[in-house]
């Protein structure tokens, strides 16, 4: 017999808060906590320092070479983003649920009138805010340095790079939260996050190269394998945006330009969107069945 079929006198009116309200409350709490965390500060400083270094060197080296100089700077920044942002997002996401579970905080939180989906979405939203703040700070400071050094800056390109970096950060945050939902201990979750970062940044490229040589993969498969790595999807999209070409990526890039020219941005976008949505959905489903202790 459901509550709805019970005599009305037996059902006590309950005033649980709405889903959006709970998500925003939890997100705000998460954002505040993340921005105060020492690890987050260190990541932000590292991102800032590397980004400023690249900007300064590029600007100093190119003088007033104009757009090509800025393009070179942007390419340098893409590599910095590829290194720092996934590591930051993966480890942040990985400790989000597992850390709270280990400290016993999840138990107390879930004993309140909140659903598990609200907790996952609240954490995701809050941590996304913190990552966006970090990326905006890093790339914003780089733009200022470039402007100060007299190098050509193109705010639109910088904004676009920041937007793509945010998408990459969200995809890695989503993967990190999936790891966190699966892991029992925060240390295991963060360790797995670092391992995944290594795999996505270094091992996947080498694996695809080795697989292509060993299995004689057709160039089409090579392109789709590359596209399936969110870091590569980000890189291709960013380079495509600067140069309207991804020829620098070799045969796969040439093939993609020839075959999918106009639809390429959609393909990159779909890849990154899938990496944001699918791991987050999986994290929510797994978290629903997991004990909070």
């Amino acid at each position: 017999m459901s509550a709805a079929t019970l005599p009305s006198s037996d059902v006590i009116p309950a005033h649980a808060p709405g889903m959006i309200s709970n998500i925003l409350t939890l997100a705000w709490r998460e954002l505040r906590d993340a921005l105060r965390a020492r690890s987050f500060l260190l990541y932000s400083l590292a991102f800032l320092a590397l980004g400023l270094g690249v900007s300064y060197v590029s600007a100093a080296g190119t003088g007033s070479l104009g757009l090509s100089g800025f393009g070179r700077t942007t390419a340098g920044l893409i590599n910095i983003v590829l290194l720092v942002v996934p590591l930051m997002a993966l480890t942040t996401g990985a400790s989000a649920i597992a850390g709270d579970r280990e400290r016993g905080m999840l138990l107390f939180l879930l004993a309140q009138p909140v659903s598990r989906l609200e907790v996952v979405l609240g954490k995701f939203l809050g941590l996304s805010g913190a990552l966006i703040a970090c990326i905006t700070l890093g790339l914003g400071a780089c733009s200022l340095v470039l402007a100060w050094q007299g190098g050509a800056t193109e705010p639109r390109t910088m904004l676009w790079l920041a937007s793509l970096s945010v998408l990459l950060a969200l995809s890695m945050l989503s993967v990190g939260m999936l790891v966190s939902a699966l892991a029992r201990k925060a240390s295991v979750a963060v360790g797995t996050g670092v391992f995944l970062w290594l795999a996505l940044v270094f091992v996947t490229d080498l694996g695809i190269m080795a697989g292509t040589l060993a299995l004689r993969l057709p160039v089409r498969s090579l392109f789709f394998l590359t596209l399936s790595n969110p870091l590569q999807a980000f890189k291709m999209w960013a380079l495509h945006s600067i140069d309207a070409s991804i020829d620098v990526l070799g045969p796969a890039g040439l093939y993609a330009m020839d075959t999918y020219h106009d639809t390429l941005p959609w393909m990159f976008g779909t890849s990154l969107a899938a990496w944001i949505v699918l791991p987050l959905v999986a994290a929510a489903l797994i978290f629903r069945t997991r004990s909070p202790v």
Binding site: I12, A16, D33, G104, F108, Q112, P113
Partner: peptide
């Protein structure tokens, strides 16, 4: 209907673990 059920409960754990 856990969320509504929990809105009727005040819970005190063995030891408060929170931020």
């Amino acid at each position: 209907d856990g969320k509504r059920a929990r809105s009727l409960i005040g819970y005190v754990p063995q030891e408060l673990a929170f931020y």
